[in-house]
């Protein structure tokens, strides 16, 4: 279980997180929604320690993340970055097997390659893709490679940052299904950041809405369409009219 208690983060005068309280139960899929620039990505970067919170406590399975040995802590996580964040200089299979080629999870090269090809197959990519470089792939294929990399070491916790941004609806559907299937298969705890409502409905067990630096609303996916919260209703409907300010 992941818990965030009163987490604050500011960049200069810009207070991005203003007291986040959120609980992500073990083995569930939580989707964090919210407008662009509301700090959704910063939230998961705070959990991973990529960004240091100004105050507040973040725990994983009851242990403060700042007190855990860094390598062992990170070994429990997988992450799909918004832009894929594949390493340009490495072929696809070495991207996928990156963690298996070095560090505490190191395996023999042939075995790591075999696992990488299996994970690529799992995300619907042919073995021939393994020896290509990321720049030779389409955006959708890069996302899938990044997904394969996120699950390669079968982590307990996986974060997906805008997994369908920039993809066409069909490819978005494919990625959503893959995430749902893989999460069920591995039994991982996941947090997905998105503002794509189709993805929310496809992926989420529970939803949390981030607005003005705080969790505005959180609840099971079934309650998303029936909530009285005007902010959530506006966001879900995509209406420009409502309490969420829009610039026009």
């Amino acid at each position: 279980m992941i818990t965030l208690s009163n987490v604050h983060k500011a960049f200069g005068d810009n207070k991005v997180l203003r007291g986040i309280d959120l609980t992500v139960p073990k083995g569930t899929s939580t989707v964090v929604i919210g407008g662009s620039g509301t700090g959704k990505s910063i939230l998961i970067k705070c959990i991973l320690g990529l960004v240091e919170p100004d105050s507040g406590v973040i725990t994983v399975d009851g242990v403060d993340v700042t007190t855990q040995p860094r390598d062992a802590f990170l070994a429990r996580f997988g992450m799909l970055f918004q832009g894929g964040a594949l390493f340009d200089s490495l072929p696809v299979w070495q991207n996928v097997a990156f963690r298996l080629l070095r560090g505490s999870l190191k395996r023999p090269k042939a075995e790591a390659r075999e696992i990488a090809i299996e994970k690529l197959r799992r995300v619907g990519l042919a073995p021939e893709v393994a020896d290509r470089f990321p720049a030779e792939l389409s955006g959708g294929m890069q996302k899938r490679v990044s997904l394969a990399r996120a699950i390669a070491a079968e982590p307990e916790i996986i974060f997906f940052d805008e997994p369908t941004t920039g993809l066409d609806p069909i490819m978005s559907g494919v990625i959503n299904d893959l995430i749902r299937e893989i999460v069920a298969e591995i039994g991982a705890t996941t947090i997905t950041i998105t503002h794509d409502m189709t993805s929310v409905r496809a992926i989420a067990d529970q939803v949390a809405m981030l607005h003005a630096g705080k969790i505005r609303w959180a609840g099971p996916i079934g309650d998303l369409d029936t909530t009285d919260d005007a902010y959530v209703r506006q966001f879900v409907s995509g209406s420009p009219e409502g309490p969420i300010e829009t610039l026009r």
């Binding site: 070994a75 996580f77 997988g78 990156f98 999870l105």
Partner: peptide
């Protein structure tokens, strides 16, 4: 470029 495209963050999450 690696930093801008989050490859540096990716390295960290991959325990490197």
């Amino acid at each position: 470029t690696m930093k801008v495209t989050e490859q540096i963050d990716a390295l960290v999450t991959l325990s490197t």
